Computed example of a mutant assay.
Amino acid sequence: MSQPLTLQLIDTHAGGDVSRIVVGGIAPLPGATVRDQMHYLRDDADGLRRLLLEEPYGIPEMSVDLLVPPSDPRAAAGYIIMEVMGYPIYSGSNTICTATAVLESGLVAKVEGRQQFTLESPAGLVQIEALVENGVVEAITCAGLPSYIDTYRASLHVPGLGDVTYSVAYSGGFYALVDATELGFSLVRKEERALADCAHRIVEAIQAERGFSHYTLGDVGPLPFLHFMGPVEQVADGYYRSRSTTYVHPGVICRSTTGTGTSARLALMHHEGRLRPGDRLETISLRETGFIGECIGTRPEGPLTVVDNTITGKGYVLAHSDIVVNCTDPLVECHGLRHILSAGQDAFD
Protein backbone atom coordinates (compact mmCIF):
# COMPACT_ATOMS: atom_id res chain seq x y z
CA MET A 1 0.00 0.00 0.00
CA SER A 2 1.52 3.34 -1.03
CA GLN A 3 2.06 6.04 1.55
CA PRO A 4 -0.76 8.62 1.40
CA LEU A 5 0.23 12.06 0.19
CA THR A 6 -0.28 14.73 2.82
CA LEU A 7 0.12 18.46 3.19
CA GLN A 8 1.24 19.87 6.52
CA LEU A 9 -0.69 23.01 7.45
CA ILE A 10 -0.83 25.67 10.12
CA ASP A 11 -4.23 27.33 9.95
CA THR A 12 -4.21 30.92 11.19
CA HIS A 13 -6.30 34.05 11.03
CA ALA A 14 -5.68 37.78 11.28
CA GLY A 15 -8.65 40.07 11.67
CA GLY A 16 -10.92 37.13 10.80
CA ASP A 17 -9.25 36.30 7.48
CA VAL A 18 -8.18 32.65 7.58
CA SER A 19 -4.80 31.86 6.02
CA ARG A 20 -3.70 28.24 5.60
CA ILE A 21 0.09 28.15 5.82
CA VAL A 22 1.49 25.16 3.89
CA VAL A 23 4.66 24.10 5.72
CA GLY A 24 5.25 20.66 4.18
CA GLY A 25 4.22 18.19 1.51
CA ILE A 26 5.20 20.22 -1.56
CA ALA A 27 8.33 19.48 -3.56
CA PRO A 28 10.77 22.34 -4.30
CA LEU A 29 9.47 24.59 -7.07
CA PRO A 30 11.60 25.81 -9.96
CA GLY A 31 12.50 29.48 -10.03
CA ALA A 32 15.42 31.66 -8.99
CA THR A 33 13.25 33.97 -6.86
CA VAL A 34 10.05 33.72 -4.85
CA ARG A 35 8.37 35.72 -7.64
CA ASP A 36 9.57 33.14 -10.19
CA GLN A 37 8.25 30.30 -8.01
CA MET A 38 4.91 32.11 -7.78
CA HIS A 39 4.76 32.30 -11.58
CA TYR A 40 5.46 28.56 -11.82
CA LEU A 41 2.77 27.76 -9.27
CA ARG A 42 0.29 30.03 -11.06
CA ASP A 43 1.02 28.74 -14.57
CA ASP A 44 1.88 25.06 -14.00
CA ALA A 45 0.59 23.99 -10.58
CA ASP A 46 -2.58 25.94 -9.80
CA GLY A 47 -4.09 22.76 -8.39
CA LEU A 48 -2.68 23.54 -4.94
CA ARG A 49 -4.61 26.80 -4.71
CA ARG A 50 -7.80 25.20 -5.97
CA LEU A 51 -7.46 22.18 -3.67
CA LEU A 52 -7.24 24.24 -0.48
CA LEU A 53 -9.80 26.92 -1.40
CA GLU A 54 -12.53 24.66 -2.78
CA GLU A 55 -14.65 21.84 -1.35
CA PRO A 56 -14.11 19.50 0.34
CA TYR A 57 -11.00 21.08 1.90
CA GLY A 58 -11.76 24.79 2.00
CA ILE A 59 -13.93 27.72 0.99
CA PRO A 60 -13.23 30.75 -1.24
CA GLU A 61 -13.13 33.16 1.73
CA MET A 62 -9.85 31.55 2.88
CA SER A 63 -6.31 32.28 1.70
CA VAL A 64 -3.33 29.96 1.29
CA ASP A 65 0.35 30.76 1.84
CA LEU A 66 3.03 28.31 0.72
CA LEU A 67 6.34 28.56 2.56
CA VAL A 68 9.29 28.28 0.16
CA PRO A 69 13.03 28.81 0.50
CA PRO A 70 13.95 32.49 0.10
CA SER A 71 16.21 33.59 -2.73
CA ASP A 72 17.65 36.42 -0.62
CA PRO A 73 19.88 35.24 2.26
CA ARG A 74 18.59 38.06 4.47
CA ALA A 75 15.13 36.46 4.57
CA ALA A 76 14.18 33.72 7.02
CA ALA A 77 11.58 32.30 4.63
CA GLY A 78 9.75 32.99 1.42
CA TYR A 79 6.01 32.73 0.93
CA ILE A 80 3.62 32.63 -2.02
CA ILE A 81 0.12 34.05 -1.52
CA MET A 82 -2.89 32.31 -3.06
CA GLU A 83 -6.43 33.65 -2.97
CA VAL A 84 -9.66 32.93 -4.78
CA MET A 85 -8.89 35.64 -7.36
CA GLY A 86 -5.37 34.32 -8.03
CA TYR A 87 -1.87 35.19 -6.87
CA PRO A 88 -1.47 38.68 -5.38
CA ILE A 89 2.14 39.74 -5.00
CA TYR A 90 1.44 41.08 -1.52
CA SER A 91 -1.15 40.95 1.25
CA GLY A 92 -1.03 42.43 4.73
CA SER A 93 -3.23 39.85 6.45
CA ASN A 94 -1.41 36.96 4.77
CA THR A 95 1.93 38.43 5.80
CA ILE A 96 0.78 38.80 9.42
CA CYS A 97 -0.44 35.19 9.40
CA THR A 98 2.74 33.86 7.76
CA ALA A 99 4.98 35.74 10.19
CA THR A 100 2.96 34.35 13.10
CA ALA A 101 3.25 30.82 11.71
CA VAL A 102 7.02 30.93 11.22
CA LEU A 103 7.38 32.05 14.84
CA GLU A 104 4.93 29.51 16.26
CA SER A 105 6.52 26.70 14.21
CA GLY A 106 10.02 27.57 15.41
CA LEU A 107 11.32 28.40 11.94
CA VAL A 108 12.19 31.75 13.51
CA ALA A 109 12.91 31.47 17.22
CA LYS A 110 10.75 33.65 19.46
CA VAL A 111 12.52 36.36 21.44
CA GLU A 112 10.69 37.94 24.35
CA GLY A 113 9.84 41.58 23.67
CA ARG A 114 10.25 43.09 20.22
CA GLN A 115 12.17 41.23 17.55
CA GLN A 116 12.77 41.84 13.88
CA PHE A 117 13.25 39.51 10.92
CA THR A 118 12.70 39.47 7.19
CA LEU A 119 10.43 37.46 4.90
CA GLU A 120 10.49 37.33 1.11
CA SER A 121 7.17 37.80 -0.67
CA PRO A 122 6.64 37.77 -4.44
CA ALA A 123 6.81 41.58 -4.18
CA GLY A 124 10.25 41.42 -2.52
CA LEU A 125 11.66 41.59 0.99
CA VAL A 126 9.27 42.43 3.83
CA GLN A 127 10.51 43.71 7.18
CA ILE A 128 8.69 42.19 10.16
CA GLU A 129 8.56 43.34 13.76
CA ALA A 130 6.97 40.92 16.22
CA LEU A 131 5.88 41.68 19.76
CA VAL A 132 6.20 38.59 21.97
CA GLU A 133 4.88 38.67 25.53
CA ASN A 134 5.11 35.62 27.81
CA GLY A 135 5.87 33.48 24.78
CA VAL A 136 2.77 34.63 22.86
CA VAL A 137 2.97 36.55 19.59
CA GLU A 138 0.79 39.53 20.47
CA ALA A 139 1.31 41.68 17.38
CA ILE A 140 2.97 41.67 13.98
CA THR A 141 3.95 44.87 12.20
CA CYS A 142 4.85 44.47 8.54
CA ALA A 143 5.91 46.93 5.91
CA GLY A 144 3.09 47.62 3.47
CA LEU A 145 3.83 48.14 -0.20
CA PRO A 146 4.29 51.79 -1.20
CA SER A 147 0.81 53.12 -1.94
CA TYR A 148 -0.40 56.00 -4.07
CA ILE A 149 -3.50 57.54 -5.58
CA ASP A 150 -3.98 56.86 -9.27
CA THR A 151 -7.42 58.46 -9.66
CA TYR A 152 -9.20 60.89 -7.35
CA ARG A 153 -13.00 61.18 -7.21
CA ALA A 154 -13.91 60.04 -10.68
CA SER A 155 -17.53 59.30 -11.53
CA LEU A 156 -19.19 56.63 -13.61
CA HIS A 157 -22.68 55.30 -14.17
CA VAL A 158 -23.22 51.84 -12.65
CA PRO A 159 -26.27 49.86 -13.81
CA GLY A 160 -28.67 49.40 -10.92
CA LEU A 161 -26.87 51.96 -8.74
CA GLY A 162 -26.72 55.19 -10.72
CA ASP A 163 -23.74 57.55 -10.72
CA VAL A 164 -20.98 56.44 -8.33
CA THR A 165 -17.97 58.50 -7.22
CA TYR A 166 -14.77 56.54 -6.65
CA SER A 167 -11.04 56.95 -6.23
CA VAL A 168 -8.37 54.39 -7.18
CA ALA A 169 -5.27 53.59 -5.12
CA TYR A 170 -2.46 51.09 -5.64
CA SER A 171 -1.23 49.33 -2.49
CA GLY A 172 -0.27 45.86 -3.73
CA GLY A 173 -3.22 45.76 -6.12
CA PHE A 174 -5.48 48.43 -7.54
CA TYR A 175 -8.35 49.35 -5.22
CA ALA A 176 -11.52 51.28 -5.94
CA LEU A 177 -12.27 53.36 -2.86
CA VAL A 178 -15.89 54.37 -2.30
CA ASP A 179 -17.74 56.20 0.47
CA ALA A 180 -20.02 53.67 2.16
CA THR A 181 -22.39 56.36 3.44
CA GLU A 182 -22.94 57.78 -0.06
CA LEU A 183 -24.06 54.29 -1.11
CA GLY A 184 -26.41 53.86 1.86
CA PHE A 185 -24.28 51.49 3.98
CA SER A 186 -23.44 51.63 7.69
CA LEU A 187 -20.85 48.82 7.40
CA VAL A 188 -22.45 46.33 9.74
CA ARG A 189 -22.43 42.57 9.37
CA LYS A 190 -26.03 42.18 8.18
CA GLU A 191 -25.09 44.22 5.08
CA GLU A 192 -22.41 41.76 3.95
CA ARG A 193 -24.33 40.21 1.05
CA ALA A 194 -25.59 43.60 -0.19
CA LEU A 195 -22.06 45.02 0.04
CA ALA A 196 -20.70 42.17 -2.07
CA ASP A 197 -23.38 42.70 -4.72
CA CYS A 198 -22.87 46.47 -4.80
CA ALA A 199 -19.09 46.13 -5.05
CA HIS A 200 -19.35 43.60 -7.85
CA ARG A 201 -21.47 46.00 -9.91
CA ILE A 202 -19.01 48.85 -9.40
CA VAL A 203 -15.91 46.78 -10.13
CA GLU A 204 -17.46 45.38 -13.32
CA ALA A 205 -18.35 48.89 -14.47
CA ILE A 206 -14.82 50.19 -13.80
CA GLN A 207 -13.25 47.20 -15.55
CA ALA A 208 -15.47 47.77 -18.59
CA GLU A 209 -14.56 51.45 -18.73
CA ARG A 210 -10.80 51.50 -18.21
CA GLY A 211 -7.61 49.77 -17.11
CA PHE A 212 -4.78 50.80 -14.81
CA SER A 213 -1.00 50.72 -15.07
CA HIS A 214 1.53 50.76 -12.22
CA TYR A 215 4.38 53.26 -12.58
CA THR A 216 7.03 50.51 -12.49
CA LEU A 217 5.13 47.22 -12.88
CA GLY A 218 3.09 48.32 -15.89
CA ASP A 219 -0.12 46.44 -16.65
CA VAL A 220 -1.04 44.28 -13.62
CA GLY A 221 -4.45 43.26 -14.92
CA PRO A 222 -7.95 44.65 -14.38
CA LEU A 223 -8.83 46.36 -11.10
CA PRO A 224 -9.88 43.52 -8.75
CA PHE A 225 -10.64 45.10 -5.37
CA LEU A 226 -13.05 47.57 -3.81
CA HIS A 227 -12.80 49.12 -0.36
CA PHE A 228 -15.86 50.62 1.34
CA MET A 229 -14.91 53.53 3.60
CA GLY A 230 -16.89 54.58 6.64
CA PRO A 231 -16.65 58.00 8.30
CA VAL A 232 -13.25 58.85 9.82
CA GLU A 233 -13.16 59.89 13.47
CA GLN A 234 -10.14 61.31 15.28
CA VAL A 235 -9.68 59.50 18.58
CA ALA A 236 -6.34 61.04 19.61
CA ASP A 237 -3.68 63.33 18.22
CA GLY A 238 -2.47 61.69 15.00
CA TYR A 239 -4.73 58.64 15.52
CA TYR A 240 -7.85 58.01 13.44
CA ARG A 241 -10.44 55.25 13.23
CA SER A 242 -12.85 54.22 10.46
CA ARG A 243 -15.17 51.32 9.74
CA SER A 244 -14.14 49.60 6.51
CA THR A 245 -14.65 46.47 4.46
CA THR A 246 -13.03 45.03 1.35
CA TYR A 247 -14.50 43.14 -1.62
CA VAL A 248 -12.10 40.78 -3.38
CA HIS A 249 -14.15 38.47 -5.61
CA PRO A 250 -17.80 37.92 -6.64
CA GLY A 251 -19.64 37.06 -3.44
CA VAL A 252 -16.55 37.44 -1.23
CA ILE A 253 -16.16 40.21 1.36
CA CYS A 254 -13.01 39.85 3.44
CA ARG A 255 -13.58 39.20 7.10
CA SER A 256 -10.78 41.63 7.96
CA THR A 257 -10.35 45.15 6.64
CA THR A 258 -7.24 43.85 4.78
CA GLY A 259 -3.76 45.24 5.09
CA THR A 260 -3.57 46.45 1.49
CA GLY A 261 -7.01 48.06 1.85
CA THR A 262 -5.75 49.90 4.93
CA SER A 263 -2.63 51.02 3.01
CA ALA A 264 -4.89 52.33 0.24
CA ARG A 265 -6.82 54.37 2.82
CA LEU A 266 -3.58 55.90 4.09
CA ALA A 267 -2.73 57.03 0.56
CA LEU A 268 -6.16 58.61 0.11
CA MET A 269 -6.15 60.41 3.45
CA HIS A 270 -2.68 61.79 2.73
CA HIS A 271 -3.79 62.88 -0.75
CA GLU A 272 -6.67 64.78 0.86
CA GLY A 273 -4.37 66.46 3.40
CA ARG A 274 -5.92 64.59 6.34
CA LEU A 275 -2.89 62.45 7.28
CA ARG A 276 0.77 63.26 7.91
CA PRO A 277 3.85 61.07 8.40
CA GLY A 278 3.62 59.49 11.83
CA ASP A 279 -0.19 59.45 11.84
CA ARG A 280 -2.09 56.19 12.19
CA LEU A 281 -5.45 54.88 10.96
CA GLU A 282 -7.26 51.96 12.60
CA THR A 283 -9.69 50.25 10.23
CA ILE A 284 -12.58 48.32 11.83
CA SER A 285 -14.24 45.39 10.03
CA LEU A 286 -17.82 44.13 9.92
CA ARG A 287 -16.74 41.66 12.63
CA GLU A 288 -15.26 44.39 14.85
CA THR A 289 -11.67 43.31 14.19
CA GLY A 290 -9.04 45.80 13.09
CA PHE A 291 -5.67 46.62 11.61
CA ILE A 292 -3.61 49.72 12.29
CA GLY A 293 -1.89 51.43 9.38
CA GLU A 294 0.84 54.01 9.94
CA CYS A 295 2.11 56.56 7.43
CA ILE A 296 5.91 56.30 7.74
CA GLY A 297 6.74 58.93 5.14
CA THR A 298 6.14 60.10 1.60
CA ARG A 299 8.29 60.55 -1.49
CA PRO A 300 7.86 61.61 -5.09
CA GLU A 301 7.80 59.07 -7.92
CA GLY A 302 7.52 61.20 -11.04
CA PRO A 303 4.13 62.94 -10.85
CA LEU A 304 2.98 60.66 -8.02
CA THR A 305 3.32 60.95 -4.26
CA VAL A 306 4.03 57.54 -2.76
CA VAL A 307 3.14 56.75 0.86
CA ASP A 308 5.44 54.38 2.73
CA ASN A 309 3.52 52.59 5.45
CA THR A 310 3.29 49.74 7.92
CA ILE A 311 0.38 47.53 8.96
CA THR A 312 -0.04 46.10 12.47
CA GLY A 313 -2.33 43.26 13.48
CA LYS A 314 -2.47 40.06 15.50
CA GLY A 315 -2.39 36.56 14.07
CA TYR A 316 -3.97 33.58 15.81
CA VAL A 317 -3.13 29.91 15.31
CA LEU A 318 -6.27 27.85 14.73
CA ALA A 319 -4.87 24.40 14.01
CA HIS A 320 -1.87 22.26 13.10
CA SER A 321 -3.06 19.61 10.69
CA ASP A 322 -2.23 17.12 7.96
CA ILE A 323 -4.44 17.21 4.88
CA VAL A 324 -4.66 13.82 3.18
CA VAL A 325 -4.71 14.27 -0.59
CA ASN A 326 -6.61 11.35 -2.08
CA CYS A 327 -6.64 11.75 -5.86
CA THR A 328 -9.08 8.82 -6.24
CA ASP A 329 -11.74 10.77 -4.33
CA PRO A 330 -14.28 12.05 -6.90
CA LEU A 331 -14.51 15.32 -4.96
CA VAL A 332 -10.75 15.92 -5.22
CA GLU A 333 -9.26 17.41 -8.39
CA CYS A 334 -5.54 16.64 -8.62
CA HIS A 335 -4.96 18.15 -12.05
CA GLY A 336 -2.22 20.74 -11.71
CA LEU A 337 -1.23 19.36 -8.32
CA ARG A 338 0.00 15.77 -8.46
CA HIS A 339 3.44 16.65 -9.89
CA ILE A 340 4.35 18.96 -6.97
CA LEU A 341 3.17 16.66 -4.17
CA SER A 342 5.96 14.97 -2.26
CA ALA A 343 5.28 12.62 0.65
CA GLY A 344 7.09 13.84 3.74
CA GLN A 345 8.65 16.79 1.89
CA ASP A 346 9.26 19.80 4.07
CA ALA A 347 9.15 23.28 2.55
CA PHE A 348 12.83 23.76 3.38
CA ASP A 349 14.24 20.31 2.52
Rank of each mutant, 00 (worst) to 15 (best):
A169K: 09
D179Y: 03
Y166Q: 12
G184I: 06
H157R: 08
G184L: 01
E192K: 15
S186M: 10
H157L: 02
H200Y: 13
A176Y: 06
P146Y: 08
L177E: 13
L195E: 15
V203R: 10
A196S: 15
A180Q: 07
P159H: 04
Y170C: 03
L195C: 04
S171P: 01
E182R: 10
S167Q: 11
L187I: 14
L156Q: 06
D150T: 09
C198I: 03
A154P: 07
L177W: 13
D197P: 05
G160V: 02
L195I: 14
L195Y: 06
V188M: 09
Q207L: 09
P159Y: 03
H200W: 10
T165E: 15
E204I: 01
G173D: 14
D150G: 10
E182G: 04
C198F: 06
A199I: 05
E204Q: 14
G172K: 05
V164Y: 09
A169H: 08
A169D: 13
A194R: 14
D150C: 01
G173V: 10
Y152F: 14
A205G: 08
G184V: 07
Q207Y: 13
A205K: 00
R153N: 15
T151W: 01
A169I: 10
V164P: 10
E191A: 00
D179A: 11
Y166P: 00
Y148P: 03
G184S: 11
L183H: 10
D150H: 09
A194H: 13
I149W: 14
E182V: 00
G162T: 00
V178S: 01
T165Y: 09
D179Q: 09
S171F: 04
R153P: 06
T165F: 00
G173N: 14
R201S: 10
V178F: 06
A169V: 06
A194D: 15
D179I: 01
E192S: 08
A205W: 03
A205H: 05
V158N: 05
I149N: 12
E191F: 07
Y170R: 08
V188K: 10
Q207G: 04
